[in-house]
Design a protein around this nucleic acid. Structure first.
Length: 486
RNA sequence: GGCGCCGUACCCAAGUGGUAAGGGAGAGGUCUGCAAAACCUUUAUGCGGCGGUUCGAAUCCGCCCGGCGCCUCCA
């Protein structure tokens, strides 16, 4: 097996992956701020990290995957001023902020489940870890890396030498040209809030050594990741837009407090564009997943995402999604045909027949995934494999049972377990007891009889009618098969 | 202004020194009562442009053109 390499933002190159503890991986990914429904950008991000987790597990690592739910703390305009997003939405909807958080959290998991994303092992809520955040801030104050002003605690950026190492920024150079307004309270414009004083009407507030307030922008991720994964862990992921300042600040807080390296591999996925333009909350041009799912099956969206590399931007367009759908169908058809042929081969106890060695395809797939999770290339391997299998399925002698079994294993493991785009056999294929498949079969036998009598317009009527109901027919040499097409 | 990314066929998209993956769409063909599915052939002497390094460059270097991102929230 080749070695797994991961593009590490910290080193700016593909590093060989070696976990801190043999066989175990601690991984943290920045989760959503739950104040509005997830959009396709979230989809791309979490599908990408889902495949990374799946692949690591497939490769035999025991992965502990932690992804936070931010239900407090992020602000609307800049790091130090502005309104809490949850509070703002709550005011608009005239409900308690936690009601928004709860509703949106459910919505988020609903969408992620639809995309076939394996749930994180732990989904810690920021509001449930206020104590840990306060403890972290206390440690930073004790070490002299933070200071308090009027109930607000700031991180003193100039006291932490490593500030800027992730994003390649130099503190002194950042001041000029930025739009960060200098707040007189702060010792340096780049200092960021760890704890914020809650003014009069602020609903989300907690008691702290510095008075009533709420956690700053970045502490939750440091506090929660270290709580569950330890002070140094293997992988931290997130969107590229979080590289600075969010992740930079996380490093400063965590390493400042512990004195140890925080994260060994930083993984950043690229963003989604719509019509070539960045999709963002402030631009208001985002497409929610729920909206996308009304036009495209969730698995097609997942397939579409995996057709480009996680570090590339992905341009969302209806045309591209249509193309993805056709490609996805092609792969799904092949898997279905292999399953059907296998049940025939099993029934006739077919020991000999056409042969295709799955080994080379499996190897190429793993090599692609080992190369910084190159899912487009891995998919290309599955397509190559499908083409060869289709040839075999059309040829005489019929493929051997062993070949079909191997092929199915490849599809189930690589396409299913790793990429998550090959679902388990559907009800119709497994003969699930239901009246509907029985009725379709009955119609098909009637139509077959009609075709024997060359009653073409009659048989076409049945076919067209079923098509309208989302059942597609295929007349093959050894009989007619059907599948759901919508 | 500072830092960074990208530009590959009609569309999407891999490939980072060895002579252009894969998917979609189009054209032609095989099979079929017709479809559908599948298979075969075909569609970039060419990788934004111009130079340079090299036996050899889409891949490395320089300049230019075009698009985008971060430096304020965002995955």
């Amino acid at each position: 097996m080749s070695t797994l390499t991961i593009y590490n933002t910290l080193t700016r190159e593909k590093d060989e992956f070696k976990p801190l503890h043999e066989g175990m991986v601690g991984m943290y990914v920045c989760g959503p701020t739950v104040y509005s429904h997830s959009h396709i950008g979230h989809g791309k991000s979490y599908v990408s990290f889902d495949v990374i987790v799946r692949y690591l597990r497939f490769r035999g690592y025991k992965v502990l995957y932690v992804q936070n739910i931010t239900d407090v703390g992020h602000l609307t305009d800049n790091a130090d001023e502005g309104e809490d997003k949850l509070v703002k939405q709550a005011r608009i909807d005239r409900v308690h902020p936690m009601q928004i958080a709860e509703t949106i959290t459910r919505s988020y998991f609903e969408d992620m489940d639809a995309l076939g994303i394996v749930r994180p092992d732990i989904s810690p809520r920021a509001s449930g870890h206020i104590v840990e955040q306060i403890e972290l801030i206390k440690r930073l104050l004790e070490k002299g890396l933070a200071y308090e002003v009027n109930g607000t605690v700031y991180f003193d950026v100039r006291k932490f030498a490593g500030y800027g190492k992730l994003s390649g920024r130099v503190v002194e150079e950042m001041v000029e040209g930025t739009r960060v307004e200098v707040r007189s309270e702060k010792r340096h414009p780049s200092d960021f809030a760890l704890w914020k004083r809650a003014d009069g009407g602020h609903i989300m507030r907690w008691a702290s050594p510095w008075g009533d307030g709420y956690p700053g922008w970045h502490v939750e991720c440091s506090a929660m990741s270290m709580k569950y994964l330890g002070e140094t862990f293997d992988i931290h992921g997130g969107g590229m837009d979080n590289q600075f300042p969010h992740h930079e600040c996380e490093i400063a807080q965590s390493e400042g407090a512990t004195g140890h390296p925080f994260v060994r591999y930083w993984i950043h996925n690229n963003l989604v564009t719509v019509n070539g333009q960045k999709m963002s909350k402030s631009l208001g041009n985002f497409v929610t997943l729920k909206d996308a799912f009304t036009r495209h099956a969730p698995l097609v969206v997942r397939f579409f995402i995996l057709q480009s590399h996680y570090r590339s931007t992905l341009d969302f367009s209806e045309e591209a999604l249509q193309g993805a759908r056709s490609g996805f169908d092609k792969l799904a058809n092949t898997v279905r045909n292999v399953r059907e042929e296998l049940s025939r081969a099993t029934a006739e106890d077919r020991a000999h027949g056409g042969v295709l060695d799955a080994g080379p395809y499996r190897m190429r797939f793993l090599e692609a995934m080992d190369d910084d999770f190159n899912t487009p290339q891995a998919l290309a391997v599955l397509f190559d494999f499908a083409t060869e299998l289709n040839k075999l399925l059309n040829a005489e002698p019929r493929p051997s049972r062993a070949t079909l079994e191997d092929a199915l294993t490849v599809f189930d493991e690589l396409g299913g377990t790793v990429l998550g785009i090959v679902p388990a056999a559907s009800g119709a294929e497994t003969g699930q007891a239901s009246i509907e498949p029985g009725l379709v079969d009955l119609l098909l036998s009637v139509r077959t009889e009609a075709r024997k009598q060359k009653l073409w317009s009659f048989s076409d009527m049945v076919r067209d009618g079923l098509k309208g109901l989302g059942v597609g027919l295929e007349d093959k040499k050894d009989g007619t098969t059907w599948r759901r097409t919508s």
